[in-house]
């Protein structure tokens, strides 16, 4: 069962449940941030996009004080898969579950557009359905998505294969012009050293039906589904 966390100010929570449940046919349910425990049977935790706690102090900074986050930290430490999209990515960075931080976009503008993403890491649980170098088209919508680590830290993340997706051109070239927010190394997604926690700024839950322009979000969400199936 997929547990989709709901913080005050989350706004992609229901879209995430819709994508997992109605499109991919998985069992998914909303979990309120004040709950102290994840529901029995939780196999994966999804932190949705939005503006948790109104982005007070810094994006994602207050959500780590929600009671459910202690349970999420224990779940992640035990190897459970945890995925944060957009604000969920910011929350995971602020909670120390992922390296780095997300800052105001380079050009200050809120960017709402399809993004092309080159797959840099093909591995369960998040990208097993992808092929190396595959270009995914998944929308982004954020004002604070500029991923930052020091260049030395980025080199360590790259060496450890923790950079999962990079912003690129439709042909798959990683260029500055294809970088929508100024993220260092064009990083759009990173995972932790163990590989069971990932954050990404793009919204896979908004790219699951051809009607809305792309089904590439299923590559990521479907990989999670496969992973859960393989562990049954």
């Amino acid at each position: 069962m997929f547990a989709v966390l709901q913080f005050p100010g989350s706004n992609d929570d229901r879209d995430m449940v819709f994508a997992m449940k109605s499109v991919l046919g998985a069992d998914a349910r909303l979990v309120w941030h004040k709950d102290a425990e994840l529901p029995a049977g939780t196999q994966c935790v999804l932190l949705p996009g939005g503006f948790s706690y109104g982005d007070y102090l810094r994006c994602g900074a207050m959500a780590r004080f929600s009671p459910i986050m202690a349970a999420v930290t224990r779940f992640a430490a035990a190897g459970g898969p945890v995925l944060g999209t957009c604000n969920g990515f910011q929350v995971l960075c602020e909670a120390g579950l992922l390296p780095g931080a997300l800052l105001r976009n380079r050009d200050l503008a809120f960017v709402c557009a399809p993004a092309h993403l080159r797959v840099e890491r093909v591995a369960a649980p998040f990208t097993s359905r992808a092929t190396p170098g595959q270009v995914l088209r998944i929308p982004i919508k954020h004002g604070e998505g500029r991923y930052h680590v020091t260049p030395e830290k980025l080199a360590r993340l790259e060496a450890a294969n923790q950079v999962v997706l990079r912003y690129c051109t439709p042909a798959g070239d990683v260029t500055d012009a294809a970088n929508p927010n100024g993220s260092i190394g064009n990083v759009a997604a990173v995972c932790n050293a163990a590989g069971n926690v990932m954050g990404l700024m793009p919204h896979p839950e908004h790219a699951v039906e051809a009607l809305t322009g792309s089904t590439h979000g299923r590559v990521i969400l479907g990989s999670l589904l496969d992973f859960l199936g393989s562990r049954r």
Binding site: L103, R104, N105, R106, D107, L108, R146, H148, T150, G182
Partner: peptide, 14 residues
């Protein structure tokens, strides 16, 4: 404050 080596686009706009 934002660290000196981190880009501050707000400051730049100001």
């Amino acid at each position: 404050t934002v660290k000196p080596d981190v880009l501050d686009p707000q400051g730049r706009a100001i």
